[in-house]
């Protein structure tokens, strides 16, 4: 019966299946570098693991770090697109990820929610003290990318609002839009109330100030949105960034966060050079190349490194 022919057929079938599995095995190289590192990596021996947030602008900076280190003969592994701070900081502390582009103000507020530091230098100084054992920051960059509250031009004009202080005069109900974690951040709805006496509702929109956020603002689903200050959408959509005279937001400069084990003199020197060269205008321009010209992160990073000619 079939058992006689089965062996031959079975063999052919198994070959076909194993060929597919083998093909998949070849495919295990990861374009974004997310290898399945489950234990901590020994910094001295392996390549340095660079992470990034699930935010295109952060990924560009991470890619710049990666290419700069590679240009100096240092091996890197890319583990980009990890999500929000609460997700990746534990990985940095454990050493699964070793180098990460961060923002001084947001990072400080994560570790010290009650901090009173507001200016760029104060924040940077406070940050060095606030970081847990095993993590440190390298030099901060002049480039800033901080949370900011924005309204449409029409809203600004018709309500005479140019600053967060002015919002208290607005009589219509206000809803704030931003990523869901904003609701629990110190500068979120509670911060607006305690600092400026402004009561707002909250609508979570998960695209980090992207098209959905802008669309919601334009169709008046929300009146106030959190967009990072280096986002080119602020300019292209003609939004008005509200001033923050009482310092609800901390100054937030781009800063490399590094696991101390990985902070060798070579790595430090290369990354500090990059940070010094990256200006606020550069950052907006890099973001614009991504959003408006649809270039990929590695192309944008390579272009910038070529332009500044550091190495």
């Amino acid at each position: 019966m079939f058992t006689a022919i089965k062996k031959g057929r079975l063999l052919t079938g198994l070959v076909a299946v194993s060929a597919v599995v083998a093909l998949a095995g070849c495919a295990s190289s990861d374009p974004l570098g997310n290898s399945s590192t489950s234990g901590s990596t020994d910094a001295a021996s392996g390549p340095i693991v660079i992470g990034s947030q699930a935010y295109y602008s952060n990924e560009i900076i991470a890619e710049i770090y990666a290419q700069a280190l590679e240009a100096n003969g240092i091996e890197v592994t890319r583990q980009f697109n990890i999500g929000q701070r609460d997700a990746y900081l534990p990985a940095l502390e454990s050493g699964d990820v070793q180098l990460f582009p961060e923002y001084t103000g947001n990072l400080l507020q994560y570790y010290a929610p009650d901090t009173t530091a507001r200016t760029s230098d104060d924040v940077y100084a406070a940050l060095a003290d606030a970081l847990p054992q095993g993590l440190e920051v390298l030099d901060q960059s002049p480039a800033t990318d901080q949370d900011s509250y924005n309204v449409t031009k029409e809203f600004s004009d018709s309500n005479g609002v140019t600053s967060l202080e002015d919002l208290a005069k607005v009589t219509t109900p206000l809803t704030l839009g931003g990523n869901s974690e904003l609701q629990t951040r110190p500068y979120g709805p509670e911060g607006l109330l305690s600092t400026y006496g402004v009561t707002v509702g909250f609508t979570p929109i998960e695209d980090s100030g992207g098209p959905l956020t802008i669309a919601a603002l334009k169709d008046n689903t929300v009146q106030l949105v959190n967009i990072y200050s280096a986002d080119p959408n602020i300019k292209t959509s003609g939004l008005v960034t509200l001033e923050d005279p009482k310092g609800l937001f901390l100054a937030s400069n781009v800063v490399p966060l590094i696991n101390s084990d990985a902070a060798t003199p070579e790595v430090t020197a290369v990354i500090n050079k990059v940070s010094a060269a990256l200006t606020a205008e550069d950052l907006v321009d890099l973001n614009s190349q991504s959003v408006n010209d649809q270039k990929s992160a590695d192309t944008i990073a390579a272009g910038w490194l070529e332009k500044v000619a550091l190495f």
Binding site: D30, P31, L32, G33, N34, A54, Y55, Y56, F80, N81, I82, G83, A87, Y88, D207, S208, G210, P211, L212, S290, V291, Q294
Partner: peptide, 24 residues
């Protein structure tokens, strides 16, 4: 999986959304 940072084709959904690229 891309939402929790494990790379897959879902990366194109998240990244395409942030950058407003429907083609992505």
């Amino acid at each position: 999986g891309s939402v929790i940072g494990v790379t897959s084709l879902g990366y194109l959904f998240l990244n395409g959304l942030q950058r407003t690229i429907p083609a992505e």
